[in-house]
Amino acid sequence: TGQSYENMVTEIMSMGYEREQVIAALRASFNNPDRAVEYLLMGIP
């Protein structure tokens, strides 16, 4: 849902990432938050 997506974005942003980076990582990871954080740390393949 939209609210849980926003919660994911906010939670990952709280780790120090910009909203645009978080959204790009979530898009690349098909909204998998664990993989999105991994992409933010290691780069999107």
Rank of each mutant, 00 (worst) to 15 (best):
T1Q: 08
T1I: 08
T1D: 03
T1V: 11
G2V: 11
G2A: 13
G2M: 12
G2R: 05
Q3F: 15
Q3P: 08
Q3T: 14
Q3D: 14
Q3I: 13
Q3A: 12
S4T: 13
S4E: 12
S4L: 05
S4A: 09
S4Q: 07
Y5F: 13
Y5T: 09
Y5G: 04
Y5S: 09
Y5H: 08
E6K: 09
E6M: 05
E6F: 13
E6A: 04
E6Q: 06
E6L: 04
N7D: 11
N7Y: 09
N7V: 09
N7T: 07
N7H: 07
N7G: 12
M8R: 05
M8N: 10
M8C: 07
M8W: 05
M8P: 02
M8K: 09
M8V: 05
M8A: 04
V9W: 00
V9L: 05
V9Q: 02
V9R: 00
V9H: 00
V9A: 03
V9S: 00
V9T: 02
V9E: 04
V9I: 08
T10E: 11
T10C: 10
T10Y: 05
T10Q: 12
T10M: 10
E11G: 02
E11W: 03
E11L: 03
E11I: 04
E11D: 12
E11A: 06
I12R: 01
I12G: 01
I12A: 01
I12L: 14
I12Q: 00
I12Y: 05
I12N: 07
M13R: 02
M13D: 01
M13N: 02
M13K: 01
M13L: 05
M13A: 09
S14V: 02
M15D: 02
Y17H: 05
Y17I: 02
E18M: 08
E18N: 12
E18Q: 11
E18T: 12
R19I: 03
R19D: 03
R19T: 01
E20S: 10
E20D: 13
E20G: 10
E20I: 05
E20V: 06
Q21G: 06
Q21A: 12
Q21E: 11
Q21R: 09
Q21S: 10
Q21L: 07
Q21P: 06
V22F: 02
V22Y: 00
V22W: 00
V22A: 10
V22L: 01
V22I: 05
V22G: 02
I23Y: 06
I23R: 10
I23K: 12
I23S: 07
I23H: 10
A24Q: 13
A24I: 07
A24N: 09
A24W: 07
A25Y: 00
A25C: 03
A25E: 01
A25R: 00
A25F: 00
A25L: 00
A25K: 02
L26H: 00
L26E: 03
L26M: 07
L26N: 04
L26A: 01
L26V: 02
R27D: 13
R27K: 15
R27E: 09
R27G: 11
R27M: 05
R27V: 08
R27H: 13
R27N: 04
R27S: 12
A28K: 09
A28P: 02
A28S: 10
A28N: 07
S29P: 02
S29D: 03
S29G: 09
S29R: 05
S29C: 09
F30D: 14
F30T: 15
F30G: 15
F30W: 08
F30V: 14
F30H: 15
N31C: 06
N31G: 09
N31L: 06
N31H: 06
N31Y: 03
N31W: 08
N32C: 08
N32D: 14
N32W: 00
N32M: 11
N32F: 02
N32A: 08
P33N: 02
P33M: 10
P33Y: 11
P33A: 12
D34P: 07
D34V: 12
D34Q: 14
D34F: 05
D34S: 12
D34N: 15
D34T: 14
D34R: 14
D34E: 14
R35A: 13
R35S: 12
R35E: 14
R35H: 06
R35M: 10
R35P: 00
R35Y: 05
A36D: 00
A36Q: 05
A36V: 01
A36R: 01
A36W: 00
A36T: 04
A36H: 02
V37G: 04
V37W: 04
V37E: 04
V37M: 14
V37H: 07
V37S: 07
E38G: 06
E38S: 05
E38D: 15
E38W: 07
E38A: 07
E38I: 11
E38Y: 07
E38T: 05
Y39S: 13
Y39P: 02
Y39I: 12
Y39A: 13
Y39C: 09
Y39G: 07
Y39K: 15
L40Q: 01
L40S: 01
L40P: 00
L40M: 04
L40A: 01
L40D: 02
L40V: 01
L41G: 15
L41A: 15
L41M: 15
L41H: 04
L41S: 15
L41D: 13
M42Q: 14
M42C: 09
M42V: 08
M42L: 11
M42E: 13
M42A: 14
M42D: 15
G43M: 10
G43C: 06
G43F: 03
G43K: 13
I44Q: 15
I44L: 13
I44R: 15
I44P: 15
I44E: 15
I44V: 14
I44K: 14
I44W: 04
P45C: 03
P45K: 03
P45V: 06
P45G: 06
P45T: 11
P45H: 12
